[in-house]
Amino acid sequence: MSESGDGGDAILNVGVDLGTSRSSVSASNGERHVVRSYVGWPADMVARKVLQRDVLIGDDALENRIMLDLHRPLERGLIKEGSEKDAEAVRELLSHLISLVNNDDARVRAVVGVPAEALRVNRQQLRNAMSGLIDQLMIVSEPFAVAYGLEALLHALVIDIGAGTTDFCVMNGRYPTEEDQRTLTQAGDSVDEQLNQLVAARYPEANFSSHMVREWKEKHSFVGEPKGSVEVEAPVRGVPTQLDITDEMRQACESLLPPVTEMMIDLISRVQPEYQAKVRQNVLLSGGSGLIRGLGAALQEALKEIGGGQVRVVKDPIYVGSDGGLALATDAPDSDWEKLSA
């Protein structure tokens, strides 16, 4: 349900997690949606006639990709630079996300999460992309939005593993500074790349695409001991063939462990000594790639090196960022929102 602001207009507070692979939106009317971050335009007149649409978004775009000029417009959680088409795709994606939740044509106040170390220019680009789509806009670091949504504001470390970036944010009861936040580019996409290479090396005659590899990972990813063998199907010289990719899957997923572990320990070691134990007990794993089976346990194992701790995968890791954005949007006073016209 839309709220009513001072002016009497219906106001809809919205939190958006603009992800490289998936984007989610949570609104104050209770609507929540997740959309794959793909935007496609019919490649030619024939495709337009078949598809009967000017632009396709999310799964719709992915399923019809063969007929589309398909764009995944976000790179490392930010708008790709130098391509007008990608900037346009981001606008389409954002417009779509807002339309999914704004059924009453309300005034929209949005909080959008970006990677922790997004530069000013990146934020400005996003602001430009959202101009005209919404009424008021705040941009925040994504892991901070996650922490805010979980109310993990004191003695906590949020690790948000998305497709494009892994973001870290230490919460010390104050607004995180640049020193409290880090971004790694080792994330879901780097796992995909590695898996692609490993499977290609083992099955050189198999024919598969990056989209298939991503689907395999989303279905079977794990670190540590496998629950069983991971078998997928791909054509080999045109014949559908079962491929055992258990070892390749493990190796690709475990490639995340060294950099994430190193950064986690480094950030904890920078916390004031008397609070380090508390932070170690409150490590929160979020983001789509945080769902890799066994990842939380492996990070918890790594914490033993510095005295042990607890790593928890947050409930609802797909929506936790947009929910956090919504919480921020709701808590910001009307007087502040008035200054933040998009």
Binding site: E151, Y175, D331, A332
Partner: peptide
């Protein structure tokens, strides 16, 4: 939370 919202704004 109030302090943090202030900073974000």
């Amino acid at each position: 939370k109030r302090r943090m919202v202030r900073r974000v704004v």
